[in-house]
């Protein structure tokens, strides 16, 4: 028992946690979710402090970003032009592709497997949009350093620009595939929840996460080319480890627990909550997502910074 004016009590009361029923703390009410949330909060705080005070070298990567913002925007615009301008088909394709996948999977899963998911087409397309964003941006981010080898050998550019460029470009692609989502919403006459614009929140988490992962992958693949193949296999596995076309509750309980460590699961769930169910995930869910994003980003920055000086000797 803790005095009811203790700090822990104030926090617990603020989030209306059951430990503070009866105006006194009952610790038997603490769940693993609570522990993970506290852990996430600590990790986020740790990363922020590390970034601000312990890692001035990493922080010094930022002014370059300001100076090279023109390059960044020019390269993203170039990507867009190359993909979308040359052919109307480019735009059409990025809308049609998810739609056709959705139709096929809807037929397969509603007739053969008979999963009982309400609005399966929407369930699927929201999940797969998030999945495609994360795997698409990290895959192109992974190859970005190698693909710019000619440039890296000839001029000085802060090299993290390349994975960043690819992640930003994937955001543009995401915007186009949201057109496909909108079409599905229109056809199925889905309710337009006021929470739909909050989709930017899980997209933001996923963007930070993808950039961090791209930093790690793009640096690693310079030294070991076969990582590209490994990651290809891994993204396939990732699709099955994320409830994109099956209901999560179908999994055995132990799998459900283990899969909590899959960041993509949280991003996908978050997107579905705001898009389909009109609800906003609570503090805990946000803490988990933030922790995944920030930890990945910090690891990525540290790893990339160490590796980048020797890129030129290996590309």
């Amino acid at each position: 028992m803790i005095k009811d004016d203790g700090f822990a009590y104030v926090v617990a009361a603020a989030i209306k946690h059951p430990v503070c029923y009866n105006s006194s703390m009952d610790f038997s009410q603490i769940t693993p979710a609570d522990l993970f949330a506290v852990l996430s909060a600590a990790v986020i705080l740790g990363c922020v402090i590390a970034f601000l005070f312990v890692l001035p070298k990493v922080r010094r990567m930022l002014p370059g970003l300001l100076q090279y913002r023109h390059l960044l925007s020019t390269m993203v615009v170039r990507d867009i032009k190359v993909k979308y301008r040359r052919s109307v088909l480019g735009i059409l394709w990025s809308i049609l592709n998810p739609l056709m996948m959705m139709i096929i999977l809807t037929i397969v899963f509603s007739t053969i497997f008979r999963f009982n998911i309400e609005n399966f087409p929407v369930y699927y397309i929201v999940g797969s949009t998030m999945y495609s964003f994360v795997t698409g941006s990290t895959t192109s981010g992974m190859n970005s350093v190698l693909n710019n080898a000619e440039l890296i050998k000839k001029v000085y550019i802060p090299k993290y620009i390349f994975p960043l460029q690819k992640v930003l470009f994937s955001l543009v692609n995401l915007a186009f595939s949201l057109i496909a989502v909108a079409i599905v919403y229109a056809i199925l006459q889905m309710p337009l929840h006021p929470t739909i614009p909050l989709l930017v929140i899980p997209v933001f988490y996923a963007t930070v996460f993808s950039f961090g992962l791209s930093l790690v992958l793009s640096a690693a693949v310079v030294y070991f080319r076969d990582i590209a193949h490994l990651y290809g296999v891994l993204t396939m596995a990732w699709m099955y480890l994320t409830p994109i076309f099956y209901p999560f509750v179908l999994l055995p309980e132990i799998a459900q627990t283990v899969l909590q460590f899959n960041p993509l699961l949280h991003f996908v769930n978050y997107a579905r909550e705001v898009m389909m169910y009109g609800s906003v995930p609570g503090l805990y869910e946000n803490l988990y997502c933030m922790a995944f994003a920030i930890v990945t980003l910090v690891i990525g920055l540290l790893f990339f910074r160490r590796a980048q000086d020797n890129f030129i000797l290996n590309i």
Binding site: Q67, H70, T74, R78, E150, K153, K154, V155
Partner: peptide, 21 residues
């Protein structure tokens, strides 16, 4: 360095300028 084969000379001037900061 940094010319992009698919873009026109005009676009490449701006891209190359951006590469140089």
């Amino acid at each position: 360095a940094g010319f992009s084969a698919d873009l026109t000379a005009r676009e490449n001037v701006f891209l190359n300028g951006a590469v140089l900061g």
